[in-house]
Design a binder for these strands. Structure first.
Lengths: 252, 252
DNA sequence: CACCTTATGACAACACTGTTGACCTGTTAA
DNA sequence: TTAACAGGTCAACAGTGTTGTCATAAGGTG
């Protein structure tokens, strides 16, 4: 066997598949993403992907060492798509908020890919571009280097971690997901006030809040904290009054 | 087949296994956790668990409808263990910080269980106890109900999401994990300043920070933001001067 | 144009997974 | 003492990722 995978670029003998398809790394990644979108979270297997491509499953191993490799490629493609449609305005807080929400949405659009790629460092082109961009936003905003890196780290991990969490939840069979929402109504909302006073007092809010993602709220809290730290370091700068939408207002 | 799983409590015909083991839900959960700890993240399969217990794999289906069911039981056990060793002091911020770090550590101690259970609502005893406890801390601290629920939600999801993220990373084969750390040194730290100025300027910090968990920092930012919101609502209270410094200090 | 090399696709097999229907037997209650 | 049946076992199914071997069409070379 030794090395089946060819250095990605110089691939020339483009022999078509028995069913007439010409394989390529890009085609495989695209098809994988489509497969995930159309046939649900668990639809991605080497065999199914082969079938969808019209190729023998083992052919894919000419392009990716193993499935994990494929996941990294998918992950980087997702990062690329997120960045491609993002337009910074110069307002660091609004820009990061927008980017965070896009990353989260991008993850939810491809739950299985998000779950499997959230904790990986791809080191590929799009990822590098994203790191550079976000660090740039923070440093231009005035964060000193060490602080910029810390906040970058928290920002990215938060987006990825929440993306994966919500994706995993979204990827559950529909019945199971509804069953979980029901737990809040049927179990938590009915606990008596004498044994569980705090749950009973807030039951209404729990039922309303818990089945939804906490990411927007988490993001706004993070940005608030970051803004506060920035203000401490530059007490001269005027504190802007930021108004953040309806549900998750964090403005001072 | 119909229903193989008996209502958990009233189980009496305790027939021993061929190899002489008497099965029970508790024994199965314990063994599963031990298996995960000893033989790495992927060691948990029905067949391996059966072997470790000295029982036929299919026997487990007398106790759990499917593996997912088993995961929920494991998840609740983990919650229970975390709560069992936690002692609140009355200082809401310190208490939540301590609890968050314990939840995170608990997840890292059982990576695979954490990854699979992080997004589940078990509705079981320990989980309910945890919800009641945390809400209590927040309400006693003075957060109004809606706000208490929102912060509870963010706090819990953040702990679970970061726990799962870091667990997933920890559960990778050792070689792969080291390879990722190397990416920061070998790829990112070597990007030229003219094409990637922000990465180049902060390379030192990136190499140092990125291979570690961002959870402590994320937790402290969250608690900062929450404290700020609390102070806004009660303008009489003195605003503490927060020092974040070295890495994870949150004491006012 | 014909040839030869070799990249790349196909095949078949391996070891593993979760799950279930049918069977068998020890425990327990009557 | 016996009869019921909970609970352990067996065997099978359909699926998975992965790899060693083989066949062939594409491309560069003469």
């Amino acid at each position: 066997m030794s090395e089946r995978v060819v250095p990605p670029t110089a691939r020339q003998r483009r022999r078509p598949t028995k069913q007439g398809v010409v394989l390529s790394e890009a085609l495989i990644v695209e098809t994988a993403l489509r497969l995930i979108e159309e046939h649900g979270a668990d639809a991605l297997s080497v065999r199914r992907l082969g079938r969808a491509l019209g190729a023998d499953p083992s052919s894919l191993y000419r392009y990716f060492r193993h499935t994990d490799d494929l996941m990294l490629a998918i992950a980087d493609e997702l990062i690329g798509r997120t960045l491609r449609t993002w337009r910074p305005t110069g307002d660091w807080r609004a820009d990061l908020r927008d980017l965070g929400l896009r990353m989260h949405a991008g993850a939810l659009a491809h739950p299985r890919a998000a779950v499997l790629s959230s904790y990986r460092v791809t080191g590929r082109a799009y990822e590098i571009q994203a790191v550079e961009t976000i660090l740039g936003v923070l440093r231009r905003a005035g964060f000193p280097d060490a602080e910029a890196v810390r906040i970058y780290h928290v920002f990215v991990d938060q987006a990825l971690a929440h993306g994966a969490l919500d994706s995993a939840s979204l990827a559950m069979p529909k019945a199971a997901r509804e069953a979980e929402a029901a737990v809040w109504r049927a179990t938590y909302a009915r606990l008596p006030a004498d044994t569980h006073p705090h749950i009973a007092a807030t039951a209404r809010h729990l039922v309303a809040d818990m089945p939804h993602s906490s990411y927007p709220a988490a993001l706004d809290l993070l940005l608030s904290a970051a803004a506060a730290r920035l203000a401490e370091n530059r007490p001269r700068a005027a504190r802007p009054t930021v108004t953040l939408d309806t549900s998750v207002n964090t403005a001072p």
